[in-house]
Design a protein around this nucleic acid. Structure first.
Lengths: 341, 341
DNA sequence: AAAAAGGATGTTAGCGCTAACATGACAGCG
DNA sequence: CGCTGTCATGTTAGCGCTAACATCCTTTTT
């Protein structure tokens, strides 16, 4: 009949809690909390004693509990469309370095170029009360967009420039496309095929194509397009070269959507004994180290990827610190004329 | 004099809570919780009504609170030494795919080959009550080791095989080193230089060197070593070739610690007009696509990286589901004899 | 010497959710 | 017709921590 003999216990983990540390140290729990989080607000002697007790008990703070109480997780959500692309890896590296030094933890999400998946990831990340969110690109599903609009934390949209929700760091892909095609025209090429991969999803490649086409139309030239159904890679670049040779025998240049494809084609041309740029010129985009090591050196456009990640992180940290920030930042690009064009 | 007129409010965020959804739907909060987490335990009609209310209010569950209450986060901590190396990226991809499908979120940590940083990351990740932890390698600082030993969740140590704390998926790097050097000997090379990068930290490259040296010592040959001070890359491989040619003019083969270095050297040889393998043979390790696209095709050893990540994730999921698992799993490796040796 | 200011520590009340137990309604059954 | 079982829902009590306010004591100021 006893009601309260066993007062309903939860399965507490074996790990010591703040309160236990406080008891062992003979202080109140808030003092332990302060000793760990704002040490300057605790008497040095008390602090030493508390830290020794923490050490002795092997106390590891429960960050979940702390986050709930303080309504803040030092998480930064980072959403990218792919991990298979070196570009995003370098951006992540730039973000990670800067954020880790500032004591933030990155939550990585991969959409695989699917906007619904992005919305799903955003939901999850909002649920974790992230301090800020970084995402690649300005295009989102409407569900995703409305979630983000209601959110009251900094948002950074990266890679491209335009109408952003909040902060924006990137470059002008249409201009990059124009730039490369101007270059190819100046070298005398006239039959230029543009080759992309999954361009409906990798729409930034599509923007570069738009710039490319614009320039060719101004010159009253055709702008044939080959859009491959798989994700860009070296192997796919080789395949693309075969396909272009078969379908556009008179092509004198190929403008690839990225360096992976371009380098794949270049190496394949080497295997086939096709002269680059004598028989056909090849150009890429990104400025990956690989393209600069092959012979002939790849003509490409360098995008400051790691810098973009760093800058994004710095802007967000400034915003989180309440400092004023530039909303839109153009990181630009550089034409790297190689020997493949 | 009124004490309770303003009963001490916390800054609640504007977002609706479970309780508010429950009130709006006219049920208790636990019913809303169940409708979202274990829908089959709620009457279909009630559930529909609750989900509509959730939608209407734009409710996003606070996962931090849920995790505190349930003492579980569905986080998987993943610790790698570097993001600059394609190998770890592929492993992460393998992990991510499998875990994301199972509803887990990856917490990524980068040690930059620093064991103290690893220990620090482990502390943080334990603080987040991760469901499991994955780390690259079997070597840890003693602080890290003791933290992990006390931890009562699954731990996966990847990449190499040996005395593990818990689960272990990887391959035998010493054997891989032996395998490649056997191959080079069988092709007739006798003056083989081994080239690694930061081998004190990338000690798995050191293990491959150990296997390499073992084989050469059995054949009563010298095993000269060049250990570069920077992280492996294509550029560094080119530099390494120069250095080997200068310091070991009689070398007839170079056994590189990885494909990046090897391919960099191979492409550089091409620029210098040095014949591969006529003047000098080149071998790598990893089996990256790049090495298979260059001419001559790179002789290398393929490690099943993505598979390793997948397998690690599968083993951990099985363990988390309480199923029995194999503690140590050898994923093996395959010699890919190319035309560079 | 009283008032004001500041430093160190404590008390209290949650943060938003879920585990564990409790309740009530109804079906099946000998 | 009471017993047991099952389903749907509710009540209660935290999870482990920190924000906000309170207290006490020491210094500084005038």
């Amino acid at each position: 009949m006893s009601k309260s003999s066993t007062p309903r216990r939860r399965r507490g983990s074996a790990r010591p809690t703040l309160t236990q540390v406080a008891e062992a140290a003979g202080v109140s729990s808030i003092t332990v909390s302060r000793a760990l989080n704002t040490p300057e607000r605790v008497n040095p002697e008390t602090r030493r004693h508390i830290l020794a007790t923490v050490e002795r008990l092997g106390y590891v703070p429960n960050l979940v509990a702390g986050s709930l109480a303080s309504a803040s997780t030092r998480f930064i959500a980072v959403i990218v469309p792919s991990l298979a692309n070196a570009v995003f890896i370098e951006v992540i590296q730039g973000l990670q370095e800067t954020f880790e030094d500032a004591g933030y933890q990155i939550l990585l999400g991969n959409t695989d170029y699917d906007l619904d998946r992005e919305a799903q990831l955003v939901r999850t990340f909002l649920g974790w009360s992230c301090s800020a969110l970084v995402t690649a690109g300005l295009r989102h599903s409407s569900a995703c967009r409305s979630l983000l609009q209601q959110w009251d934390h900094p948002i950074m949209e990266m890679m491209e420039l335009g109408e952003a929700l909040d902060l924006n760091v990137g470059l002008d892909h249409t201009a990059a496309g124009r730039c490369m095609t101007h270059h190819l025209l100046s070298r005398g090429y006239r039959q230029i095929v543009y080759v992309g991969a999954r361009m409906a999803e990798d729409y930034r490649a599509g923007m570069r194509y738009a710039g490319h086409r614009e320039v060719l139309e101004d010159a009253e030239l055709a702008a044939p397009l080959l859009d491959l159904a798989r994700l860009g890679s070296l192997e796919l670049g080789a395949l693309a070269l075969d396909q272009v040779l078969a379908t556009h025998p008179r092509a004198d240049a190929i403008h690839f959507a990225n360096d992976d494809l371009a380098t794949g084609a270049l190496l394949h041309a080497q295997r086939l004994g096709i002269g680059v740029p004598k028989d056909i010129a090849i150009a890429g985009f990104n400025g990956l180290p690989l393209g600069q090591q092959v012979t002939p050196r790849l003509t490409t456009i360098r995008s400051p990827r790691q810098r973009m990640g760093q800058l994004a992180a710095e802007q967000l940290l400034a915003r989180l610190a309440g400092e004023p920030v530039t909303l839109r930042q153009d990181v630009g690009f550089t034409l790297l004329p190689g020997d493949s064009s």
